[in-house]
């Protein structure tokens, strides 16, 4: 009987394991293997050990991309998560009328494919033809040049914020719904204001959900790809081929034909993301231990 159950369990997980191995583990191992070689247009393939990784560690194009994404993370994530938290609390307080409709409205941008969203914002930002530019110049102010090299990072942060506020809000909102309401009632009886309830009860109780959104943001931001690759067509000189690490890996592989170095860059990037996500999680667990 027990043996039968075991067999059934293996049969059930088999499809997943097959797909997982063939679509994830094998390609990953293969690109790890590739990253240890160098292929030259002249001379062919040679084993180069960790030379590609050594190059990545000192490649200014890659490092600048990482720094750019770190800036992105430090500036954009607090804004996006702050807004998401604010909206989630507002919806949860049931003071906002038509909460159902609002929830949907906030969430809609996430349902818009990132490609469509970026194309749309690219048009809105556009110089001479974009509505933002036209309105600003119509009232006599200088054109904002939202696609200029110095501003495009901010413009991109705005797109990402727009896309993901709703998504993060839903995670936080769902966590808020599972907080026992007795706590609020007790606090209200004690005369606590709504702000105080939010600050002292609601936010601490959903801290693990908030940390989850932070981890998602770290991973998402370091993998930015759609936004730079699509905005490049409207702002070709503001976005370099190594603007984000992920976009750099793509260009290395498909434009430079340097699959091996691209694999090394991808692995290094994965490692950086792993370290950062782990650091974020470590901090939260430690804090939780302290408070409990």
């Amino acid at each position: 009987m027990r043996r039968k159950q075991h067999i059934a369990a293996y049969v059930f997980v088999l499809p997943f394991v097959v797909v997982f191995l063939s679509m994830l583990v094998v390609p990953l191992a293969y690109s790890g293997y590739l990253s240890l070689f160098q292929v030259r247009l002249v001379g062919g393939q040679v084993f180069s050990g960790l030379a590609n990784y050594a190059q990545a560690a000192t490649d200014p194009a890659f490092l600048q991309g990482l720094v750019r994404m770190a800036v992105f993370l430090l500036v954009q994530t607090p804004i996006m998560l702050g807004l998401a938290l604010f909206f989630a609390l507002a919806l949860d307080s049931s003071r906002a009328r038509g909460a159902g409709v609002l929830r949907l409205l906030f969430f809609v941008p996430y349902a818009v494919p990132a490609v469509v969203a970026t194309l749309m914002w690219g048009y809105l930002y556009g110089r001479d033809f974009g509505p933002i530019d036209q309105v600003v110049t119509a009232v006599g102010l200088p054109a904002p040049e939202l696609l200029a090299p110095g501003r495009i990072l901010g413009s991109m942060m705005n797109i990402v914020t727009w896309e993901f506020v709703g998504y993060n809000m839903i995670i936080m909102y769902a966590a808020l719904r599972s907080v026992p309401t007795e706590l609020y009632e007790a606090a209200e009886l004690d005369g606590a204001s709504q702000w105080r309830i939010a600050w002292n009860i609601k936010i601490p109780s959903i801290s693990s959900a908030i940390m989850l959104t932070v981890v998602f943001s770290v991973i998402g931001i370091f993998q930015l790809f759609n936004e730079p690759s699509l905005l490049k067509s409207v702002a070709p000189n503001a976005i370099s081929s190594s603007y984000t690490p992920n976009y750099y890996a793509y260009n290395l592989a498909f434009v430079n034909q340097d699959v091996n170095y691209a694999a090394a860059i991808a692995f290094t990037l994965g490692f950086v993301i792993m370290v950062l996500s782990y650091a974020v999680q470590l901090r939260t667990t430690r804090r939780r231990e302290v408070t409990s």
Binding site: P236, N237, S240, S241, N251, N256
Partner: peptide, 16 residues
Amino acid sequence: DYAYTNFNDTLGKVIS
């Protein structure tokens, strides 16, 4: 391909 892409990161960037 590399030469044309790299133009955008070097001379092209300076022109813009």
